[in-house]
């Protein structure tokens, strides 16, 4: 028995080492990114968040309610503005590749094509695409591990950090030339997003924008980053910050929650 154990431990170690060595390129990078990307969404989710926008010309705060439904191939998103007064009741909804905008002041729904996905949402640094999640970083890209190291994250303890380079596939319908994705895995191999650097062109030295995740908290029984900050390195001092105040996963939503009635 004893000999058996003394034999198996090194053997297992050896096996795991071998697996590790050969795994440099077979790590499930794509799967981690998918996990990190959907950490705040689940299959369906409902959230209350506040958005703080700081720009050279103005600064503003919004309070928002966001419903998402990712069960179908094409996700559904509803963003309803709760305040301040000028925008209270305004809603943006994405179903299929159609974005609709509702303004309670004239009770009109304006339907727009997906061409405005790249536009900024409500004067923030987030694009409609960011909030509607039309672009999926776990598809359309080739993944390459740049760096890995162990570290600490407040709230979950020891983690392992990975820096992954995302290069768009030649035919991919994507807006960025390169994305550098930093994420970390906790003890249960769950992936958390840390920071995303978006580059216009693959050989750019400076990122066009940087999205970072912070403030890990338990929400609906799950530890998630509750703050997202979008920075534009070219515009110092400007940023948009989203802070989750409530988040519930796998809520029961139906197509009705994203229909025209739900807007009003």
């Amino acid at each position: 028995m004893a000999t058996y154990r003394t034999l198996t431990v090194p053997l297992a170690l050896l096996l795991s080492l071998a697996a590790h060595a050969s795994a440099a390129d077979s790590l499930p990078l794509q799967q981690w990114i998918k996990q990190a990307e959907t950490i705040l969404r689940g299959d369906t989710s409902a959230a209350i968040m506040s958005m703080k926008i700081k720009k050279e010309a103005y600064q503003r705060e919004y309070d928002l309610m966001v419903l998402t439904d990712d069960r179908a191939e094409s996700s559904k998103v509803l963003i309803k503005m709760l305040g301040p007064a000028l925008w209270r009741g305004n809603a943006t909804v994405k179903v299929d590749d159609k974005i609709s905008f509702y303004d309670p002041r004239n009770s009109r729904v304006t339907v727009m094509g997906s061409s405005m996905l790249g536009d900024n949402w409500m004067g923030s640094h987030f694009s409609n695409d960011d909030l509607m999640r039309e672009t999926d970083l776990s598809r359309h890209y080739d993944y390459q591990l740049l760096q890995q190291q162990t570290g600490q994250e407040e709230g979950i303890g020891a983690v392992r950090h990975y820096t992954i380079k995302l290069s768009p596939k030649p035919t991919a319908p994507v807006a960025w030339g390169k994305v550098v994705y930093q994420l970390y895995l906790d003890g249960q191999q769950r992936a958390y997003p840390k920071q995303l650097d978006y580059f216009q062109r693959a050989d750019d030295a400076q990122a066009a924008r940087t999205l970072s995740y912070s403030a890990l908290k338990a929400m609906d029984g799950k530890t998630v980053p509750t703050r997202m900050t979008m920075l534009l390195p070219a515009k110092r001092g400007e940023f948009t910050e989203i802070e989750y105040r409530k988040l519930k996963f796998n809520v029961k939503v139906s197509a009705e929650n994203f229909g025209e009635r739900a807007l009003q």
Partner: peptide, 18 residues
């Protein structure tokens, strides 16, 4: 601000009741 808080509270309820 109070109205916003009211809207948030109502949205909280709505989420709970989904």
């Amino acid at each position: 601000r109070a109205l916003t808080e009211q809207a948030i509270a109502s949205a909280f309820d709505q989420i709970e009741q989904l």
